[in-house]
Design a protein around this nucleic acid. Structure first.
Lengths: 166, 166
DNA sequence: ATCGTTTTCTTGACTTACTCCAGATTAGGT
DNA sequence: ACCTAATCTGGAGTAAGTCAAGAAAACGAT
């Protein structure tokens, strides 16, 4: 949040990221380092949040670059993408272990939940319908503490706030 | 798929839908009946597919009307909306029971999976972080039979087909 | 240290899947 | 049959992300 870092390109602040990128066969670039570095301290951020943070550090970074970085890192497994229905995608550096998420229906706030079961795919469908199942994604939907206190209980349907457009 | 029905408004083909709408406090309209009726025989259809099907039956129906119907019915629980990451939302009439889904990463084909556990929320997170958990959504990701045979194994990262844009 | 190749970043248009708005239309109780 | 609220129509608007072409870096070899 508070950019205590100087304006100059501080590409080496997190040697981790550098190493990880190399190991994954990706080139080490300032935007990539900045994304990985910042995301390590701010899990579950949206692409937009990442872009803002990275720009604060590096100056100008194109939206496209941010998406490219996020996609490339996700592809090689350095990042994990979570896409809760109705909310923009969120990214986290905690990838690889198989943990799940708790998502607030209202504000989209996302928290980690350790896997209830254990190893991936962690659950088995009773009938796979011929599919080759690769992963079980578990999402717990609810209301975060903040949204709970701000009224608007999601209990029964039809409260005047998500009311179609009548 | 084959509209064996005559072109005229066959609003009564599915007395079920009529009854359900009334019970839910929604007005009985031709688009609503058509949507519910068709969807009953074509689960996991996208809004676009629904629109096409409904137009085949009723002639002109606005996109907005389709979305309104889908949203209204979802809101009162006559329909369930599934929104797999990276794919448009899908709708099904099997709502209320708590079953899960199997989604093809490639083509988005969706199939039902009966709940492994039982009653909602069906799973409990170890630590709710202060959230009021309401539902556990389980999505099994994989490849459907068709996409499996069309090559493109999703096994390891970086095969030339989802290659960012290099 | 410099070069050349390959990957990555920039700019900016475009797409998809929806939602919003204002006004015309219609359902259904009385 | 009427009235009024609920529902549709048509068209613009939005959010989130993708595509494309060329400029600029990064890496490896010289």
């Amino acid at each position: 949040m508070a950019p205590t870092t100087s304006t100059r390109d501080n590409a080496d602040r997190r040697p981790d990221a550098r190493r990880q990128l190399r190991a994954a066969g990706l080139r080490v670039t300032a935007p990539r380092l900045a994304v990985l570095d910042w995301l390590a301290g701010h899990p579950h951020a949206t692409a937009d949040e990442v872009a803002t943070a990275v720009r604060e550090r590096l100056g100008t970074v194109s939206t496209q670059a941010v998406y490219d970085v996020l996609n490339a890192c996700t592809r090689v497994g350095l990042l994990r993408r979570i896409e809760p229905a109705g909310h923009p995608a969120r990214f986290e550096t905690r990838a690889g272990d198989n943990h799940h998420h708790l998502v607030c229906r209202q504000c989209g706030r996302t928290e980690d939940v350790d896997c209830v079961v254990g190893a991936r795919p962690c659950l088995d469908p009773s009938d796979t319908a011929g599919f080759e199942v690769e992963e079980a994604e578990v999402l717990f939907w609810g209301l975060c503490p903040d949204c709970r206190s701000t009224g608007a209980a999601p209990s029964s349907h039809a409260h005047h706030e998500e009311e179609g457009r009548a």
